[in-house]
Design a protein around this nucleic acid. Structure first.
Lengths: 96, 96
DNA sequence: AGTGTTTACGGCGACCGTAAATATG
DNA sequence: CATATTTACGGTCGCCGTAAACACT
């Protein structure tokens, strides 16, 4: 499991179709489908039900989504927590 | 930032030296040092103070560690939450 | 029909390992 | 002195893109 796969999963869950998620992520559909399949295989469970109208979260997917969002939120929090402790203007890219 | 980098950081923080962390992670020192450097560069801040006795967490590193542990815990929770929802004996590897 | 899935292929980048030299404190 | 860091090299693996065929509802 990688952070990319988690982001991909969240995008599909929020967009409702693989096509829209792929557009939002700026990647093509086959790699996105592949990564979702790899994630589901690693977890040993399907996360979505596939239908002609798009992807619908299964119960396992809904529970997984809760944790996925927490993980991404924690990653952002981790970034912020060190960002706020930088030496003022220590980074030339930020002082311009 | 990748989950591997987070695991590497936690291992160094807990072991106290890059050498012991590398042994625990079953990788060699240069890749581990590289990944830590890449993480610190991405964050824009050093996380450890380097000394002859090993690695000491800086304040930014201590705060980052809190989030790092939460991330890894959430990942495990995400795994469990779908693991417990499998179809009974659906996976042949588990029914043997 | 419209969506997702799969295959095949190729290319690019990431990561690792080893080995050795170089800081740092 | 013991530790970490860096360099250089090479090999392997992962991920992506494209294109096309296939499957499902």
């Amino acid at each position: 499991m990688s952070l990319s796969q988690i982001q991909y999963f969240v995008a599909i869950a929020e967009e409702g179709t693989v096509g829209k998620a792929a557009a939002r992520l700026a990647i093509s559909q086959p790699p996105l489908t592949r990564q979702l399949r790899l994630l589901e295989e690693e977890l040993g469970t399907a996360l979505f039900a596939r239908g002609p109208k798009g992807m619908a979260l299964l119960p396992a997917g809904e529970r997984f989504l809760v944790h996925a969002l927490r993980i991404l939120a924690e990653v952002n929090a981790a970034r912020r927590t060190v960002f706020c402790s930088r030496e003022p203007s220590a980074d030339p890219l930020l002082s311009s």
